[in-house]
């Protein structure tokens, strides 16, 4: 059980405004970690630091250190494309590309230069199976991915991330646009892939955090309030604020 990502004293500023006040969090390999907290607490902002998605936003300054294994992801030598290959991301709104299912899943591999049809076929099938969507799409692989339901699209997006075999998968509220049945399928998917991937998920749904995660971090106003095993967090958190938030008293 070693740490795959270690972050120390991460501050993030949007211009003058400080959005993260020094977050130190470590993520254990092959575990699911949930980041929870009310809107605006910084959980998505923090998550986006982990594969440098915030680089795309103007006026953002980040200090502190974030290491993937032992390499600082913000060092000048880091190649952002290969970083994002190792640390994949799934967003709140399902965002398949406007072409067929097969090409969606194969996209990252083709981008990486994979040409072998057998390899592509095998990887597409495996990824769709891991994402628990294979049975629903296997006879429709060449139909436009946008023709599927929101829940199915989201699982296709998970498959697209899995196809490039990242080590870490970041999910930013992946089920908040989905109905409970589709959400449950995504949750099943995450539990299925836990043995091979490290999963970090931002969620507004506390039940979701409690059901699937091994550890939970609670953020509030840009600070990390508490970080512990999920079971401990939901039964006897150390901080009164955590308890109040989990009980829906604010946020």
């Amino acid at each position: 059980m070693s740490n795959i990502i270690t972050s120390k004293d991460v501050h993030l500023y949007y211009g003058e405004k400080e959005a993260l006040h020094g977050i130190s969090l470590d993520f254990i390999e092959h575990q699911i970690t949930a980041l929870i907290g009310p809107s605006g607490c910084g959980k998505s902002t923090y998550l986006r630091c982990l594969n440098r998605m915030n680089d795309l936003i103007k006026g953002v300054t980040i200090t502190g250190s974030i290491k993937l294994e032992d390499r600082d992801i913000y060092s000048p030598e880091t190649d952002v494309v290969s970083l994002r290959k190792r640390v994949g991301m799934v967003f709140q709104q399902p965002n398949p590309f406007p072409f067929n299912v097969y090409e969606n899943v194969a996209y990252g591999l083709r981008l990486a230069g994979e040409r072998d049809k057998h390899v592509l076929d095998e990887r597409v099938e495996t990824s769709l199976k891991q994402a628990a969507i294979w049975d629903e799409v296997k006879d429709h692989l060449y139909e436009n991915a946008l023709a599927f339901s929101g829940g199915q699209q989201q699982r296709i997006c998970v498959a697209r991330v899995l196809a490039v075999q990242p080590e870490v998968i970041l999910l930013d509220e992946p089920t908040s646009a989905l109905d409970p049945i589709s959400s449950a399928k995504i949750e099943d998917t995450l539990l299925n892939i836990r043995d091979q991937y490290t999963v970090i998920i931002v969620t507004h749904n506390m039940q979701q955090a409690s059901r699937i995660s091994d550890k939970t971090a609670f953020l509030l106003n840009g600070d990390l309030v508490e970080y512990a095993k999920t079971e401990k967090m939901f039964i006897h958190p150390d901080d009164e604020k955590t308890s109040d938030y989990l009980n829906g008293k604010f946020g």
């Binding site: 039940q207 409690s210 059901r211 939901f234 039964i235």
Partner: peptide, 9 residues
Amino acid sequence: ALSLIALQQ
């Protein structure tokens, strides 16, 4: 039992 109640609601 307590853990099931707290985590699975």
